[in-house]
Design a protein around this nucleic acid. Structure first.
Ligand SMILES: [Zn+2]
Length: 559
DNA sequence: GTTGCCGGGTT
DNA sequence: AACCCGGCAAC
């Protein structure tokens, strides 16, 4: 009490609280003895350390908060990407008329010539302004013929009808093409943005082929495309959203700072919120009886995904909830170390072909499975149902940067239990499954990256040799769940989301006790010895031993 | 209700 | 690390 007199700025305390927005303060200040909090000498001298500490805390907290915004950004970026794709100025016309080219045969006559290949939208037309374009005889151009880009020479360009007679160099054919379908070789505007997606499996003949492939190949008509894209976009966004949380886990392989940090934070966080309730439980439990509703078995038991699954196991739910915060934590810093590439896999019964671009896969499906089908419109839509996006983890990916989706792409971790140490990230996973499977499975595993950050955690002492798990990470979690269940763990962490389940609190130390020695009903028996408190009385608290003052086990009057 | 003190939080 | 407290079990 006396010492507190020097306190210069009593107000500083409250302020700090406000600043950090920590929940507890109000209660504290309001209740109990007032004395303690006005003491402030510490801050004066320990200025630096405290500041730094606070800073870290602050950053953590803020970080979390800021993440909210960040989170949105992910999907948004994705969306953007999509939009970009959609809005890419291109061949709306191409498709519409693609199906019918006028091919001139030897007789020099132009005939309607429709064929699958020729209309393959492999090459978007860069001639944004066909109308303005005037091709000269002998000019080198490219046209899409038989799905290939063919170097051709202009023979004649009819400005009126915008038809261009060209000579297909390789085929030696003479053909009439719509101006829109002809790409001028020279047109070499801005170099192609080197899209990872941009792939053209076609055996491109021309040397300057790339000049042409500037645009992303979007095989749709504007209107149609727009709609479709919307759908896709929505789907993808949803998917990414639902899966995003898992993203955190990938770092597993690399015990990189960010990952662990994030984990810690969340852990911390949960701890904060957890509230006293947690400790309380301590006593109970004697009997492992209450196997805590949550964990019947280990969710991971079934590697399969069961969409319904998550409803059943709260563990999952809990996880999901938690995951979010995870995600939120420092989204920016995190970099997909293990680059994950997005591939597209054909779902046709016996196919399974995997391509790197969505365009490619679509074309594949369309041409290989759906057959041509002049009704481009219908076809186009169908393609979407026969391929799926797949995440492929690439070891040495030089630079798998761009695609936003990859960044947020969900990475599935499977069989966490199977092999503790090697947190083999599972690669290719169907996006569709992600939501349920990913979560449920990752639930247990996700703890991995929760490093044994806090030494103090060790205090509980109970380092149960439990599972081979990375108990390092699971600190209390492990202890908690240990015997009864491994998975459910998170129970309290949910906190922030209020809607808790009636999860029975799990108390670490107790559990531990039970197995080893026959604790039976062994409540801790209080020593008969009187302690400082009793001896000196509350009014003479200053005479108590420190332990007593701190409400710890008395050091002066041992039992 | 009082005591003892664990588990946690703040500084 | 030093301090403080909420809470809970034992009394
Ligand atoms: Zn004492």
């Amino acid at each position: 009490m006396q010492r507190s007199c020097c306190n210069p700025r009593p107000c500083s305390i409250p302020q700090s609280y406000v600043l950090f927005g920590v929940s507890p303060p109000p209660a504290r200040l309001a209740g109990g003895y007032v004395r303690p909090y006005l003491r402030h000498e510490g801050s004066a001298r320990a200025c630096l350390p405290s500041v730094s500490t606070m800073a870290s805390v602050l950053s953590r907290r803020l970080g979390k908060r800021s993440l909210l915004g960040a989170r949105v950004s992910v999907p948004s970026s994705l969306v953007d990407g999509m939009l970009v794709t959609t809005s890419i100025p291109t061949l709306q016309a191409e498709l519409s008329r693609a199906s019918s080219h006028l091919v001139s045969y030897d007789d020099g006559q132009c005939r309607e010539h429709s064929e699958e290949g020729s209309r393959a939208p492999a090459f978007p037309n860069p001639n944004l302004n066909p109308n303005r374009l005037q091709l000269h005889p002998g000019q080198k151009v490219y046209v899409t013929y038989n799905g290939q880009e063919c170097a051709s020479l202009v023979e004649q360009h009819d400005p009126g009808s915008d038809e261009v007679k060209v000579l297909l160099l390789e085929q030696g054919l003479h053909a009439c093409w719509k101006l829109e379908d002809v790409r001028v070789a020279e047109i070499q505007r801005s170099p192609p943005p080197a899209l990872p997606m941009d792939q053209s499996p076609t055996p491109t003949p021309g040397p300057s082929q790339r000049s042409v492939s500037r645009n992303i190949d979007v095989p749709k008509r504007k209107s149609d495309a727009a709609v479709e894209m919307d759908e896709m976009m929505a789907a993808m966004v949803l998917t990414s959203l639902s899966c995003s949380p898992v993203v955190q886990s990938p770092p597993t392989s690399d015990s990189s700072i960010p990952a662990s940090r994030a984990a810690c934070d969340s852990w911390k966080e949960s701890g904060d919120i957890s509230d006293s309730g947690s400790s309380t439980t301590s006593g109970h439990w004697s009997g492992g009886s209450d196997i805590s509703t949550p964990s019947p078995p280990h969710p991971e038991a079934s590697p399969k995904y069961s969409s319904e699954a998550f409803s059943s196991s709260q563990a999952d739910e809990g996880f999901e909830m938690d995951s979010d915060p995870f995600l939120l934590d420092e989204p920016a810093p995190r970099k997909r170390k293990n680059s994950v590439k997005v591939m597209y896999k054909c779902l046709w019964p016996n196919c399974g072909k995997v391509l790197r671009s969505i365009v490619g896969i679509k074309r594949h499906v369309k041409t290989q499975h759906l057959g041509d089908g002049a009704d481009s419109d219908q076809r186009r839509r169908e393609e979407d149902f026969y391929y799926t996006e797949v995440q492929v983890k690439e070891e040495a990916a030089p630079e798998s940067a761009p695609s936003p989706s990859s960044a947020s792409s969900p990475i599935i971790i499977q069989q966490a239990l199977a092999k503790p140490e090697t947190l083999v990230l599972e690669q290719s996973t169907l996006e569709s499954h992600l939501p349920s499977s990913a979560l449920s499975q990752s639930a247990p595993s996700s703890f991995w990256h929760i490093q044994a950050d806090h030494a103090y955690q060790a205090l509980p002492s109970i380092q149960i040799p439990v599972s081979p798990h990375i108990f390092t990470s699971i600190s209390w979690a492990a202890a908690t769940s240990t015997i009864p269940s491994l998975s459910p763990v998170r129970s309290r962490s949910l906190s922030f989301s209020e809607h808790q389940q009636p999860t029975p609190m799990l108390k670490s130390h107790l559990i531990v006790a039970s197995p080893p020695r026959a604790p039976s009903g062994t409540r801790k028996v209080r020593g008969e010895a009187k302690k400082c408190r009793k001896v000196y009385g509350i009014e003479h608290r200053d005479q108590w031993c420190t332990a007593c003052r701190w409400k710890k086990a008395c050091q002066r009057f041992l039992d």
